Amino acid sequence: MMQQFYPQVQHDFRFELNKDMHFSAAHFIPDEEAGKCQVLHGHTYFVNVTIGGNELDPLGFLIDFKQLKDLIHKKYDHTVLNDHPEFQATFPTTERLAEQIWKSIQDVLRTRDNRPACLQVIVRETPTSYVVYRPLQEDL
């Protein structure tokens, strides 16, 4: 995987964790305004997740990198995004995918005693196009 430098999110946490990962998935946007994207097609999505926190768990982690990868990769790799329940009411655009990845991660982080927060999710759909999702402060 090539090195990427992404936009930084401003925060006051003592620790910041960034995890890069990728997965392959297909999707389509069933609307004629979507042009070619109406047709089922696939991408190798590259994802960067930023997590911040002030306290570490007993092992010294905000959260284990492997847990983050498993949470996203196992869910989406080699699937059709349109088939996932979270995309039944909306189209699986890159923007919505970034938002859903944030929700999945934040739901797990809320259960942790050290209470880290997912500050930013970046989803790269192609080598030249990516989306940044940052939650509202009240959603953390």
Rank of each mutant, 00 (worst) to 15 (best):
L40V: 01
G42L: 02
T50L: 08
N48D: 06
K36E: 03
G53M: 08
G42Q: 02
N54T: 07
G60T: 09
K36D: 05
N48E: 07
H43F: 05
I51N: 10
N54E: 12
Y45H: 11
A34K: 08
L59G: 11
V49Y: 04
F61V: 05
Y45M: 10
P58M: 13
G60M: 10
E32A: 08
Y45I: 06
T44F: 06
D31P: 05
D64C: 11
G42A: 01
Q38Y: 05
V49P: 04
E55T: 14
A34M: 09
L56Q: 12
G52F: 11
K66N: 03
L62N: 12
I63D: 07
V39Y: 00
T50A: 13
I51M: 08
G35I: 02
C37D: 04
N48H: 14
G53N: 08
Q67K: 03
G53Q: 06
E55V: 14
T44M: 02
E55K: 15
L62S: 11
Q38C: 05
Q38S: 03
N48V: 07
E33L: 13
L40I: 02
G53A: 09
N54V: 06
T50G: 05
Q38W: 01
V39Q: 02
K66Y: 04
H43Q: 05
I63K: 09
F61D: 12
C37L: 05
P58G: 13
D57T: 07
E32T: 08
E33Y: 09
G60C: 11
K66G: 06
K36N: 03
Y45V: 07
K36V: 00
L40E: 02
T50R: 10
L59H: 14
E55L: 14
Y45S: 09
F61Y: 15
H41E: 02
N48K: 14
T44D: 07
D31A: 15
F46A: 13
L62T: 11
F65H: 04
G35A: 05
G60F: 12
E33K: 15
Q67A: 03
K66E: 03
H41P: 02
L40M: 03
H41G: 05
L40S: 03
E33Q: 14
D64Y: 08
V49I: 15
G53L: 06
H43C: 04
C37Y: 02
G60D: 10
G52W: 12
G60N: 11
H43Y: 06
T44N: 10
G53R: 09
C37W: 01
Q67W: 00
P58Q: 14
Q38G: 02
I63C: 11
L59F: 15
H43V: 04
Q67N: 06
D57H: 10
D64R: 11
F46Y: 13
K66R: 02
F65C: 00
K66Q: 03
N54P: 06
V39I: 02
L40D: 01
V49N: 01
E55G: 04
H41D: 00
N48M: 12
G42P: 02
V47N: 06
N54Q: 11
G53C: 07
G53P: 07
D57N: 15
V47I: 15
D31H: 15
G42K: 03
N54G: 09
G52H: 12
